[in-house]
Simulated scan of single mutants.
Amino acid sequence: MTPNKEDYLKCIYEISQDSQKINNKQIAAKMQVSAPAVSEMIKKMLAEGLIDKNKRHGYRLTEKGLPLVSELYRKHRLIEVFLVDYLHYAIDEIHQEAEVLEHTVSAAFVDRLDKMLHYPRFCPHGGTIPKKGEQLKEIYHLPLKQVKQPGFYCVRRIHDDFLLLDYLAKHQLVLGQKVEITQIDDYAKTYTITYADHELTLPENIAAQLYVEEAARPQK
């Protein structure tokens, strides 16, 4: 399978996590490619049985496509762990390196890497690392933008996008940080959080990329 096709499969999977229906326009926007390029690749993947299409959901990964995507995420996230733990890359540096390497390393290499790293459960961004042969199921899957009530939460997963990570670093908001959601503005679609000595108002597009877990109120 070509690296380009693998990227399309991952793209469709990622869109499916936040959208009820997937179309060519969404794929083109996320991949930053032309509409004709998307149409050509979609035809190939439909013919190979990697995806299917219906009126209600648009495109969806098939039982043939899902295991391939899980293995891609396993490769990518294990490589990220290696880059941080052994080569001392910064968190905001690892995604692009892993993107390149995931298309070049063999299955045997990944299995040995998994063993060497002692079978980690999470990547440095908090994403779940599926075991070999298992389907990817994110343990932390509640995006901040779906939180309905103010309260205390812990940031458990961050979408591994360089610009997002750079933005959060500037505001000293990191993985594992406990925050209090103090205000949810449904009209403005913003979420105001406090943590340490900071107060930050996040727009919906950023809140969609932060995954949280309910936390106990801090003891005074």
Rank of each mutant, 00 (worst) to 15 (best):
D52P: 07
V81R: 10
E102A: 01
L50P: 03
Y59N: 06
L68D: 08
Y73M: 10
A37E: 05
L200S: 06
V69E: 03
Y86F: 15
P218S: 09
L173K: 01
Y119V: 08
L50T: 05
N54T: 06
K170C: 12
C11L: 05
S39M: 11
K10F: 05
L72A: 10
R74T: 06
K170D: 15
V84M: 12
Q26S: 00
D114T: 09
Y153K: 00
T128H: 06
E204Y: 07
A108I: 14
H198W: 07
R157E: 01
I42S: 02
K53C: 14
R217Y: 13
I139Q: 13
F152Q: 04
E97V: 15
L113Q: 02
E80M: 14
I94C: 01
K5D: 10
E214G: 10
P130T: 06
A107Y: 10
T194W: 02
L200V: 06
Y195I: 04
L68I: 15
K64Y: 13
L117E: 04
K10M: 11
C154S: 15
C154G: 12
A28D: 01
D111I: 07
Q20H: 12
N205D: 15
V110W: 03
L101S: 03
Y8D: 01
A107P: 04
Q32E: 15
M116P: 05
E97W: 11
K21Q: 11
V100F: 15
V179P: 04
